[in-house]
Design a protein around this nucleic acid. Structure first.
Lengths: 263, 263
DNA sequence: CGACTTGTTGATGTACATCAAGGTACGTGG
DNA sequence: CCACGTACCTTGATGTACATCAACAAGTCG
């Protein structure tokens, strides 16, 4: 054993001060207009709207879902960022993925019974709540939506495949370049970019835990990457300066990203 | 860049000498009796049987699915072992997962359009073929089966999560112990174990590519692991000698494995 | 103000990769 | 039969990408 990242105390994860917001009807959901998201029929939207049991506001640092428990809910991210992670007994942490607006959370728990991972809010967030036991209704009433759920699961599998190659077979610079570019592109697609800059709410520690390296090494890798002048990342603001240059360092062809469902 | 595993020539992957076997009706499928697999209703079985368009026999080394192409089929493994992998441009390889009898292959391609990974047969295999374009029928006619497909996708996500923690945050011994135990358990559940021994059809190179390490290091790690007397692996035969001991080295709680669907 | 979070940097150690060589078992065609 | 190739495993010597340890700087917060 070696591999860095022990933290004795659960430094983040404050007490989960949550709140119930008022309900925006799905018909007026601001996300639904995004061009990357598949158009729903009015019936589909109405069904989903009816499935939605409420909204949840959580503060940054809150654990939305917890490894080892079974959640009664599924969530859609309306606003804010989160990350999915697993902890080992001795405190090592691996971040599996980040969640952005329009992402769907908790399916594994709905299907398994017990969560095998945790999810923590990176920023203040707004989530749509769907009761887990009504997922079955969706399957019996709306094949199109069931297909979407499968689609979503298959796509996260793709992301994970990418991460596995990334961590298993590539050096620190390649990994880092790939991750930053990946997160930039995702944010950009959601209209979160201003010019070529995005507000990244995560820290170097999060990046290190995503890429399976130590904080110190992540820091030094970022320095080297900055020296390449393909990007800049200071005070939570990420700027993409040379997309092709960064892509070249990542040594990668980005897989095609399609229009996707949003439940 | 570093991170091992370049191979100039595609050493394995012979020419895909395949063959069409005769058709076993799903009602008589030998796998369906396995206690780990969920019981299907007669209607479900009949529907699946009708969906099945044929059987495929492939030799060890054949590429069943290829990164960058779009396959017209979905497969269920009836017999034999395979592995899912991705290659980088310079020849580095990352194995993502292994496929055993009862596993479902090709969903990502069905849902995306273009495969983002390849699958290669480790042994001679028999596969059930399902035409991809009829997947939609399944969604419209059988919510229960659609739910199963989602279930399967969510479960592979869980496997990938595990692998990510494994590669990202654990040392060579831990990784190795975990992988071997994991593969043993999977094989055992399918009735492939004799006493406490299983025939593993993969080589040390495959293990190395799964764990994101070099062949040499995998070999040395295996030596050290053998010295612990918790297992033995010689001439393709793996023997589990001390389950708890190996589990302790893996430093892990195995997640609960449930009864699962088999399409 | 201290306590804490985040970033930064240098010194040192080690887990890993790379290189190189050889060893066994299997096949092939002469 | 042997010579030859090839697939797989093994082992030692050497190099390096990473982790660990330690310290400090800047910003924020109660």
């Amino acid at each position: 054993m070696t591999k860095s990242r022990k933290r004795a105390a659960p430094a983040s994860s404050r007490e989960s001060a949550v709140g119930q917001g008022r309900r925006i009807p799905c018909e007026k959901c601001p996300l639904r207009a995004l061009p990357v998201l598949r158009k729903f029929t009015p019936e589909e939207v109405e069904f989903v709207s009816n499935l939605k049991s409420g909204e949840l506001n959580v503060e940054a640092g809150t654990n939305i879902l917890l490894q080892g428990t079974n959640s009664a809910h599924l969530y859609t991210v309306l606003a804010g960022w989160a990350f999915r992670y697993k902890m080992l007994a001795d405190g090592r942490r691996q971040i599996l993925n980040f969640a952005l607006p329009s992402d769907f959370l908790g399916l594994q728990g709905a299907v398994a019974n017990e969560m095998q991972h945790s999810i923590e809010a990176l920023t203040d967030m707004t989530l749509c709540i769907f009761p887990r036991e009504r997922l079955w209704e969706l399957y019996t009433h709306y094949p199109s939506l069931s297909y979407d759920v499968t689609w979503i699961a298959a796509r996260s599998e793709q992301y994970l495949d990418e991460s596995l190659v990334n961590i298993g077979r590539r050096g620190a610079m390649e990994r880092m370049a790939y991750l930053l570019l990946h997160m930039y592109v995702r944010a950009e697609k959601l209209g979160l970019a201003k010019g070529s800059a995005v507000q990244f709410p995560f820290t170097q520690q999060h990046v290190a835990d995503t890429l399976g390296m130590s904080l110190v090494h992540a820091n030094k890798t970022l320095k080297r990457l900055t020296a390449s002048k393909t990007m800049r990342w200071k005070d939570r603001t990420f700027e993409l300066l040379d997309r092709d240059g960064l892509l070249a360092i990542a040594g990668y062809e980005m897989p095609p990203e399609h229009v996707r469902p949003f439940i």
